[in-house]
């Protein structure tokens, strides 16, 4: 870890200005990812702009019936917020499926979107990694890639975005509010994270110096029929091998609207709108779900140690859609995925 200076911003404009005036600086939210990366010398900022005093920790209703999640609200406060529990239980479940209570108490919503991949090689300076050091090569291709992606990968990077929260967000389709040196703007959630292409060092489409200030969830929360299914190597405190966020709107047994997003498979939370369209108008049956699952992984490509993810993703999609259709999940049922 290199020496760095630290300042604490109390207004958004100050934070943006402070960051712009320090060339190698980073924003600091809960620090649960950034500080780790600094200890491993993967990130070497010389200045940190502390965000926790910004007035962005609130969660408030929007006039259009939606809900605004402040960028500095913690993952825990977000998950346990009454409106989130009752109207966006999918988000509640996804957040609670991630990390540990201690981490969720510190982690912020903005930081969650910005957390970096858990690809082993990204974290280890002894190995080449295009994401860490553009042009050095991708060690995961041909290496140990159990945690890597199967969809939307490129020749230069096969890493995944590790967040659980973001998988639910991909399904719920909020807009991301940002503030930067050139003013404020919003970004559709689906356009926020990007695929690696030949620039894997870029995780997302934020412009330099831009700060996330919040997320605006649309009114529709799929609170009746939803499922967040997370499969991992132990029952808690492990990143997803595969996760599925599913939301259905049913009329009788017919699917009126659907959302489907996957985690653990791609460089971004993987929402598949074609699959969603395939579901619409269909009966909520295992047969439908199987066809849709097959479509989602039709172009998937394994890289050796993660080949199993293709079959596992298919099965997880079917299971999650079934659970969503049965509508028997409850927001408080946080250990659902680990029940024996």
């Amino acid at each position: 870890m290199n020496p760095f200076t630290y300042s604490r911003a109390t207004a958004v404009a100050d934070a943006v200005r402070d960051k712009a005036s320090h060339p190698d600086s980073e924003y600091l939210g809960g620090g649960t990812n950034l500080i780790d990366l600094m200890k491993e010398n993967v990130a070497r900022p010389t200045h940190l702009v502390g965000l926790n005093k910004l007035p962005l920790a609130d969660i408030e209703a929007l006039p259009d019936g939606g809900l605004r999640l402040g960028a500095l609200a913690t993952n825990a406060d977000t998950a346990w917020h009454d409106e989130v529990k009752s109207r966006y239980p999918l988000l509640n479940q996804a957040i609670l499926a991630g990390a540990s209570p201690q981490l969720r108490n510190a982690a912020t919503n903005g930081g969650n979107l910005m957390q970096r991949t858990r690809c082993y090689y990204f974290y280890d300076l002894a190995t080449p990694c295009n994401k860490r050091e553009p042009g050095s090569g991708c060690s995961a291709i041909g290496g140990y890639n159990r945690v890597c992606g199967i969809l939307g990968t490129s020749e230069s990077c096969i890493a995944t975005h590790p967040s659980d929260m973001c998988v639910a967000l991909a399904a719920l389709a909020p807009t991301v509010r940002v503030s930067g040196p050139n003013g404020d703007r919003t970004i559709a959630f689906d356009d926020f994270h990007r695929l690696p292409g030949d620039q894997p060092e870029k995780d997302n489409n934020l412009e330099p110096g831009e700060l996330i200030t919040g997320l605006d969830l649309p009114a529709k929360g799929f609170e009746k029929n939803f499922s967040y299914l997370k499969l991992r190597d132990r029952s808690s405190y492990a990143f997803a091998l595969i996760s599925v966020a599913a939301g259905l709107e049913l009329e009788g047994n017919t699917i009126k609207d659907a959302r489907l997003a996957l985690g653990g498979v791609a460089h971004k939370p993987w929402r598949d709108q074609e699959a969603e369209n395939m579901l619409k108008g269909q009966p909520a049956t295992e047969d439908t779900f199987r066809r849709v699952a097959a479509k989602v992984v039709a172009d998937a490509k394994g890289h050796g140690s993660n080949d199993f993810k293709i079959e596992l993703a298919k099965r997880a999609i079917v299971r999650a859609l079934k659970q969503a259709a049965e509508g028997n999940q409850h927001a408080a049922d946080v250990f659902l995925n680990s029940n024996p």
Partner: peptide
């Protein structure tokens, strides 16, 4: 300890 997995309470 994030990637070297030992059982947690839930296991």
């Amino acid at each position: 300890f994030a990637e070297y997995h030992v059982p947690v309470n839930a296991d």
